[in-house]
Write a protein that binds this DNA or RNA. Structure first.
Length: 757
DNA sequence: CGGGATACTTAGTAGAATTGTT
DNA sequence: AACAATTCTACTAAGTATCCCG
């Protein structure tokens, strides 16, 4: 049940405990001067950069970029303030903070260099590309680990000790490399000792890259007409369809087993769009979808997929190789001297649109995308991708203020789709890092902001009260902002600002608690949010006020929208938006839960259970759900059988041990003593196995409807997990799989065991 | 200010790939 | 080796946020 929000209140409480109470005075002083100082600060900061080559006050974009720089700078100058207090800590810190620290110094000398972190550049490798040392290091580790896996287990422990040593050395080398790398940045600013050819981009004024070359997208395979023996029937009579109409018919036929092909909206939308693809003759004949018989087509596709499964190894291998070839050719691009993996280089194939939830456009035809629909983005001095023979791109442009390589407009909602880089890329990694830094900045001032919105609950102005209550929900319940949506264009879902009166019920008293708000609404992806939350009296009274004289379908916050809210947040903290609260609360919850749940005496599986539980607390907070796996019940049963078997095995082993002991007592010889020892070990081993199974069962049961992946990938500062692994000697592979390790390479290299979010 | 356009992040799921079991 | 169970990956929909224009 998602109603369990034990961590919410404690979150707020311990949050304030964390931030030393003696700071309170400063805090309020801060607040008083905030408005006046804000502008000044900005200007002061700006003037620091005024001698930078890119200064141009007339250009708004430049100002924006300055703002971005400020964000990064802020953290480092705060560090400076805390210098004395932190001094001792610094002595203990390893490489992780070292980056920040040197970064601080660096930013004073050459602020631009800061933007390069943590991707310090190196010499080109033999493949002709530059790789950042960090990535290289992770790759190398992985290779090491892979090797280890092939070795027998006994050797592995000795081996891992050596490996640990080696890693330490490696780490030291990395520090060295880092320092050398930084020197190179410092040098040019000290003298005009210009440069090495690997002098890299300084991303000012929103520039995302200087060089971008790629091969363009891979188009969906062309339509292959059905063999003539697969027939379509209308009103019981065979009818040969034109290729265009046939293709769309196959889309429907492939979905026949799905429940949604029975839905009215789906059928209506499909039929309307299908008719558009028909010849005029077909159009006049085919007037009723209910008379269409797709069953032969459907059977044909089922047979095809069976055949695919039954293919020989060679055939499967051939397909695999072909895929690999495509990946090698189209799956990578070159961005600023780095070869980077592309996330989605295939164009989405045509088909029937199936939105999530009750979508008014379900069943509509998603058009085939042609080269003429495609906009290519690459640098002027690159080799442009070639359109397929006989075709043209819609446009080739060279916009280095965006990160996408290819775009097209989709026909269902008219939105733009993009081809972008993989999460492991520099450009995504840096952004991700930045996101967590922003959340950490919120941590520093969240007490002030909370005090402020609590104050605002009493405001004379309705709009301010609404804003304050909404922000309270966003903070306490990790609700999404809730942008307005066009009615009839999408499923009816809401977020915080778009909540309607019908989505909450107020209970003066419920289950022995006062002032309970019951939430029940569909959020993103039409996932239901259901929660009963006790709130403060003042919030409760405000809600009553907001709901007064309103119809159920009226907006709860009629004086508020996301843009107003975000503007307000911007004033409270530079760069703050509603979604930062989700990131912040998710990450801080993970950290707290990990601290609370992990005990160092536990064995590895038990620690991992603790990790999963901490992760789960976050997933519950963020309402990340999944459909229970189809095989859930069965797999639970299987596990239980295994546990029972193991228990029996344990009982047997114990009995054997007992008799061996008795035997040894009588015989008193070496042999029987040894037998006792080995029986003891056997019992221990079995006990351990049993425990592991039980842990697994608990974990799985608790995880039935909860999806951990989303929070892990998008909300939890990976440095928390890395630090936790280091602290408790858990191999990082147990927490992050290969893809995740690639995505979080920056964090894996940056965070030490004492990292604190 | 409001609405459309744009860019980018966050989300759950289907099916492929891998791993475990018999 | 065959099959089942589990994990991973690709896919793409659905959000957030910001900018620009009238």
């Amino acid at each position: 049940m998602s109603g369990d929000h034990f961590h919410n209140d404690s979150q707020i409480d311990s949050g304030s405990r964390h931030n030393d109470s003696h700071k309170h005075k400063d805090k309020y002083k801060d607040k008083e001067h905030k408005h006046k100082d804000h502008k000044k600060d900005k200007e002061r900061e700006k003037s620091k950069y005024s001698n930078s080559e890119h200064r141009d006050s007339s250009d708004k974009k430049h100002r924006d970029k300055d703002k971005e720089r400020l964000k990064l700078k802020d953290g480092s100058s705060d560090k400076q303030k805390d210098k004395h207090r932190e001094k001792k800590k610094e002595e203990r810190v390893g490489r992780g903070l070292c980056y920040f620290h040197i970064a601080t110094v660096l930013s004073q000398l050459n602020p631009l260099a800061l933007e390069e972190f943590p991707f310090i550049k190196s010499e080109p490798e033999n493949d002709g590309f530059y790789h950042s040392p960090k990535h290289e290091k992770s790759l190398k580790r992985e290779r090491d680990d892979d090797d280890a896996e092939f070795k027998p287990k006994k050797i592995k422990t000795e081996e891992s000790e050596k490996k640990a040593k080696k890693r330490k050395q490696e780490e030291e080398v990395t520090v060295l490399v880092a320092c050398v790398g930084m020197l190179v940045y410092i040098l040019p600013s000290l003298c005009f000792f210009i440069p090495f050819r690997w002098e890299e981009e300084r991303y000012t004024d929103g520039v995302k890259w200087k060089f971008l070359e790629h091969k363009g997208p891979v188009f969906a395979p062309p339509y292959e007409p059905l063999p003539s023996n697969v027939k379509f029937y209308y009103d019981g009579k065979h009818m040969k369809l034109s290729p265009g109409a046939e293709e769309v018919a196959t889309f429907f036929a492939k979905m026949l087993d799905h429940e949604y092909t029975t839905k009215d909206v789906f059928r209506k939308n499909f039929f309307k769009d299908w008719r558009k693809e028909m010849t005029s003759e077909e159009k006049s004949k085919l007037t009723d979808l209910n008379k269409c018989d797709f069953s032969e087509m459907s059977e044909y596709f089922k047979a095809q997929s069976e055949a695919r499964k039954a293919m020989t190894k060679e055939e499967k291998l051939k397909i695999k190789e072909e895929n690999e070839r495509l990946l090698q050719e189209y799956g990578f691009c070159i961005m600023d001297n780095h070869k980077e993996r592309i996330a989605n280089f295939r164009i989405e194939p045509p088909g029937l649109f199936r939105g999530r939830g009750d979508h008014p456009k379900m069943g509509m035809l998603k058009r085939r995308i042609r080269p003429e629909d495609i906009i290519i983005n690459c640098s002027k001095d690159s080799k442009y991708p070639k359109p397929p023979p006989g075709t043209k791109w819609k446009e080739v442009r060279h916009d280095n203020k965006v990160t996408w390589l290819v775009s097209w407009t989709e026909n269902i909602q008219g939105s733009i789709k993009y081809i972008m880089l993989n999460p492991s890329s520099r450009i995504k990694g840096e952004k991700d890092w930045q996101k967590y830094e922003m959340a950490r900045r919120l941590k520093k001032c969240v007490d002030r902001i909370r005090a402020q919105y609590r104050e605002d609950w009493k405001s004379k102005e309705m709009r301010i009260r609404q804003r304050a209550v909404a922000l309270y929900f966003i903070d306490k319940l990790a609700l999404r902002a809730g942008n307005e949506k066009e009615e009839g264009e999408t499923a009816d879902t809401v977020g915080c600002c778009s909540l309607r009166v019908e989505h909450l019920t107020l209970h003066q008293e419920m289950d022995g608690q006062e002032y309970v708000v019951e939430f029940d609404f569909l959020g993103k992806d039409s996932i239901r949010y259901y929660n009963k939350v006790p709130v403060e009296k003042r919030v409760f009274k405000n809600l009553q006020l907001f709901m007064e004289d309103k119809e159920p379908e009226d907006d709860l916050f009629d004086r508020l929208n996301t843009s107003i809210l975000n503007k307000h947040l911007q004033e409270l903290m530079d760069g703050l938006t509603a979604k930062v609260f989700r990131t912040y609360n998710a990450s801080i919850t993970l950290q707290q839960q990990l601290n609370e749940l992990t005990s160092s005496e536990d064995n590895v599986p038990a620690k991992i259970l603790s990790y999963n539980r901490a992760n789960r607390a976050v997933a519950i907070l963020c309402n990340h759900q999944r459909a229970p796996p189809k095989t859930f019940e069965k797999s639970m049963q299987n596990l239980q059988t295994k546990i029972d078997a193991k228990k029996e095995q344990l009982a047997d082993a114990k009995r054997e041990l007992k008799s061996a002991k008795a035997d040894a007592k009588v015989r008193r010889d070496e042999k029987s003593k040894k037998a006792v020892e080995s029986k003891k070990k056997a019992v221990q081993r079995i006990e351990e196995q049993l425990m592991k199974l039980e842990v697994q069962a608990t974990d799985r049961e608790e995880n039935k409807q909860i999806a951990l992946g989303t929070s892990k990938l998008n909300y939890l500062d990976p440095r928390i997990s890395v630090a936790w692994c280091k602290k408790f000697g858990i191999p990082i592979e147990k927490i992050y799989n290969k893809t995740q390790r690639e995505k979080f390479a920056w964090a894996i290299d940056m965070a030490e065991k004492d990292y604190e979010f």
